[in-house]
Structure formats: structure tokens, C-alpha cells
């Protein structure tokens, strides 16, 4: 006997058979996914709120310009001027290495490399993307710092290892999305390959490359592990000589956080608030920029 005969047409279109039970489980799972998404978003807001609550009161022009009190960290709060300047310097150095390296790699992989050469480079890129950042730090520590001491150059190199895969992978994607018809049109007109790349492909992919660079800069600005062993200056006055260690925001936060002095900790919150604002704004900006440039390309 089959209890699952065709449903009676006279029966209203409400759940029949086991459907009521199945709907309950299904709705429960849907509810779980909604809750999970809500949880993630609330964690983001809780973190931002917590940092803002403790850090926003620190924010002042003096805080951005002054330096940390040198010896006795009494009741006077200091400033993070030297760390901001140093962070700008090492991120600039890093981007100067990573942007050309990343874009050239992307050009090579998309425009020149045959499958056999492309495969190992592609793999290396994927592995670099997953490289623990502390290993980038310890690598440069062994390579440069062990011989020449800490420096902004060393920090820049370590950060560029983090940045290159970010820039290269996004650039590859946006170059691949350049319509083949454009390239074919250029080929049909007998235009030299390099002119096509520099005149058509790169300008068309520029939106994606700029986005990737902004995101990579935001990422590098917040990375601690690569700079901890390469430029671990803390609490120093303004120092921009790239041959020497320079103070920077992540290391400053890392050290202030571990200090037992409440005034120092509130400086850490101030610096963290600044960092998080910059990074989130860069993320939002990069997304908007990407959306705009894609719309302009009609994608």
C-alpha cells in the first residue's frame, strides 16, 4: 500500500504529507544562516564601537603630531606623530616595490607566459598569498636585518611580500576581463603588442589595479608581523632615515597594548581607532571606485 499517492486535488494548497515537518527544518536552517550573518555583522560593529569608544576621545591634532613621552609615561598622554610618519614611509616603500612587481607579474602571466612557465609562477603567487606574515618578517630578518640591522627598507621589503600577491591576483583578474574584442581589434589593425598592452589593456584594467593597490596599502598599513622584526622602533621621536628603524603604527599599538600603564593603553586605543578608520575607509573607497570604473566600462 502506498500512502504517498498523488495528492488529492481537492485538498487546499497547504502542506500535505511530511511537508509540514520538512518546512520546519528548512526554516530553522534558513534562520541559522540569517543569524550567522547577523552575528558576523554585529561582531564587526561591536569591535568598531569598542575601539571608537575608547579611542575616539584621544583624537586631536596634538595626538597626531606629538610624540610619545620619552621616559616617564606619567599622566600625560603622548602622540603618535612619529608612528604615523614612519608608517607612511614604510608603506610607501613597500608599495613602490609591490606595485610594479605585482602588475608586471600579472602582465607576464596574462600576456606573455606559456602554460609551462605560467604554472609555477601562478602556484608561487598562490602560496605567497597564503604565507604567514610572520614568516615574511622572519625572512627579511634573516636576509637583511641580521647583516645590516633594522631599517625602513627592510620593513618595506617584508610588507611588499604581503602586498605583491594581493596586487598581482586582482590585476590578473581585471586584465582577463578586458574584452577580447578590443585586443582583436588592435591586432587586426596591426598594432604592436606592447602598444596594445600599454595603450589598451592596462588603461582598461586600471580600475581593478587601482582598487587592488588601495586594498594592499590598507592591508600593509595594519600588518604587524612583517615589521615587528624589521622596524621595531617604539616611542622614538620623528625618524625618517630609511637606513634606520622607523616607528610605525602597528608596532606602537602592539607595544602600548602590552604596557601596564593606563595612559599608554589609551594611546593604543587612539592609534587603533585611527588605523581602523583609515583601513575601513580605504576598503569602502576601493569598492566604490571599483564599482564606478566597472560601470564606466559597461561591465
Amino acid at each position: 500500500m502506498n500512502v504517498h499517492a498523488s495528492p488529492d486535488p481537492a485538498h487546499a494548497l497547504t502542506p500535505s504529507g511530511n511537508l509540514r515537518r520538512r518546512m520546519v527544518t528548512s526554516r530553522a536552517v534558513v534562520a541559522v544562516t540569517v543569524l550567522a550573518a547577523a552575528l558576523a555583522v554585529s561582531v564587526l560593529f561591536i569591535i568598531v564601537y569598542f575601539v571608537a569608544q575608547r579611542g575616539a576621545s584621544q583624537i586631536s591634532v596634538a595626538f597626531f603630531i606629538r610624540q610619545l613621552p620619552l621616559v616617564s609615561y606619567g599622566k600625560v598622554t603622548g602622540g603618535i606623530g612619529p608612528a604615523i610618519a614612519g608608517s607612511v614611509e614604510i608603506v610607501l616603500l613597500s608599495t613602490l616595490i609591490a606595485l610594479p612587481a605585482g602588475v608586471l607579474t600579472a602582465i607576464y602571466l596574462t600576456e606573455f607566459a606559456g602554460a609551462r612557465v605560467a604554472a609555477p609562477i601562478q602556484t608561487a603567487l598562490e602560496l605567497l598569498a597564503g604565507l604567514p606574515t610572520i614568516i615574511a618578517g622572519i625572512f627579511v630578518a634573516g636576509l637583511l636585518v641580521a647583516h645590516y640591522g633594522q631599517s625602513a627598507y627592510a620593513a618595506g621589503l617584508a610588507l611588499s611580500i604581503v602586498q605583491v600577491p594581493l596586487i598581482a591576483r586582482t590585476s590578473i583578474e581585471s586584465i582577463r576581463r578586458v574584452p577580447a574584442s578590443l585586443r582583436e581589434a588592435a591586432d587586426a589593425l596591426g598594432i604592436a603588442r606592447w602598444r596594445t598592452i600599454t595603450g589598451v589593456v592596462l588603461p582598461t584594467a586600471a580600475g581593478g589595479i587601482v582598487t587592488a593597490t588601495i586594498l594592499a596599502i590598507a592591508r600593509a598599513a595594519g600588518e604587524t608581523a612583517p615589521v615587528l622584526f624589521t622596524s621595531s622602533a617604539f616611542g622614538t621621536p620623528y625618524q625618517l632615515n630609511p637606513n634606520q628603524q622607523v616607528p610605525n603604527l602597528p608596532v606602537e599599538i602592539y607595544n602600548l597594548a602590552n604596557s601596564l600603564n593606563p595612559t599608554a593603553v589609551s594611546d593604543a586605543w587612539g592609534a587603533a581607532f585611527l588605523l581602523i578608520c583609515l583601513i575601513l575607509l580605504a576598503n569602502i573607497g576601493a569598492r566604490l571606485w571599483l564599482r564606478r570604473s566597472e560601470r564606466k566600462r559597461g561591465l
Binding site: 495528492p7 494548497l13 497547504t14 500535505s16 518546512m23
Partner: peptide, 12 residues
């Protein structure tokens, strides 16, 4: 209608 279950509809 308001009380129609889509899954039931497609089952039929």
C-alpha cells in the same frame, strides 16, 4: 492565495 505553500504547489 495567501495560504498557499509554494513547495506543496510544486510537489503537485
Amino acid at each position: 492565495g495567501p495560504h498557499v505553500n509554494r513547495v506543496e504547489v510544486r510537489r503537485r
